[in-house]
Amino acid sequence: MNRLLAPFALLLVLALPASAEPFRLIISDLETPLVPNSVVDLALANGYFERAGVEVELVRVQQTPMAMAALQAGEGEMANVSTDALLQMVARGTSDLRAVMSPNKSLPFLIAARPDITDPAQLEGRSFGIGRLGSLDHSLSAKVLAAKGVDMDRMDLVPLGQPAVRAQALLAGQVDATTMSIGTWSAMPDRDSVSILVGMDDYFAAAPVTTKVNVVTTQVLGSRRAEVEAVIEALVLASRDFQDPDLWVERMVVARPDVAREDLMVLAEAYRNSWSVDGGLTREELKVTTEWMYGTEDFQGLRPVRLEEWTDFGPLETVLRKLGPAEG
């Protein structure tokens, strides 16, 4: 009997997936974040990866450098990292990293100002709070305001550090305007005393910069491509579902019971158009991203990199052919 069953046992082994190990996704959020990248935690908690046919394990680290180090050390198969860090590594000689999607391509930035400032043109000659000279909020906002015909060099730039500090300075009347995320905005007390001058959608339209991407190594692309595609499929489907503000809030109430439902509703409405419903990577936006980043101080002296040196659209294109485009 054992001799008869042996061939069938061998066939069963051969039919199993090439890797029985979980697919490890490295993220720099220590808890479910109040931004579109919450889709990663929510996709895991609500069975999206399982339905796509992949077992995912989250590896949590602090900030992009640790995520990059963990990926290169083989402690994960995919990592969510900042685009500028990826580009700098490629420009300095790293050749085995590829961006394959982005569940959170844009920072949810807006520009808030004193209520008497109702047009960006009125900012010239006023004080503007920034993180530091050359910081992401500074350089991105300069691009946004330039698109609106405003020269940031004609403002009094005040380095203040973290967004919460800048928000407090705006409330206290110490600056006339500043950049912050919608999360910082929604957490501000007495925000009726200030107003949104440039909203999130308007901000991204003026500066369509992809700031975060999910990267894998070329080795993982070669050996576990089906799982890479399954992870992308799960995140795309979850992003499409969470465009529904009510659904996102219902899931976030479970994931983050420390946040008031009314605050989640504010965020859900703000994020309605921010989900990566088609994977978050387009050649046009990545071209703008590269050109903009190479104009910043951090890229001075680095060699230009070609798009194919750090991206692979193949897995995402395969997924989108299967799922079709998002509605709307």
Rank of each mutant, 00 (worst) to 15 (best):
N2H: 11
N2C: 09
N2I: 13
L4M: 12
A9I: 06
L10E: 12
A15W: 13
A18D: 10
E21G: 00
I27Q: 06
V35H: 11
P36D: 10
G47L: 04
Y48T: 00
E55L: 03
V56Q: 00
E57M: 02
Q62C: 00
M66E: 13
G74T: 00
G74H: 04
E77H: 14
N80G: 02
L87M: 15
Q88A: 12
V100R: 05
L110V: 11
R114L: 13
I117G: 02
P120A: 11
E124P: 02
G125E: 09
G129P: 01
G134Q: 11
G134M: 12
G134Y: 12
V144M: 06
L157I: 08
L160F: 05
A172C: 04
Q174E: 15
V175A: 04
T179W: 01
M180H: 06
R191G: 06
S195N: 12
I196T: 10
I196V: 14
M200V: 05
D201A: 13
D202T: 06
F204N: 13
A207W: 05
V209W: 05
V213K: 02
V220N: 00
G222H: 08
E227R: 07
A230Y: 03
I232F: 07
E233T: 15
V236W: 03
R240T: 12
Q243C: 10
V249Q: 02
E250D: 15
M252G: 07
V254D: 11
P257V: 04
D258E: 15
M265Y: 13
M265L: 15
E269F: 10
Y271H: 11
S274F: 13
S276E: 07
G279W: 01
T282Y: 05
E284R: 15
T289R: 04
E297H: 11
E297F: 13
V305L: 03
R306L: 12
E309H: 06
P325Y: 11
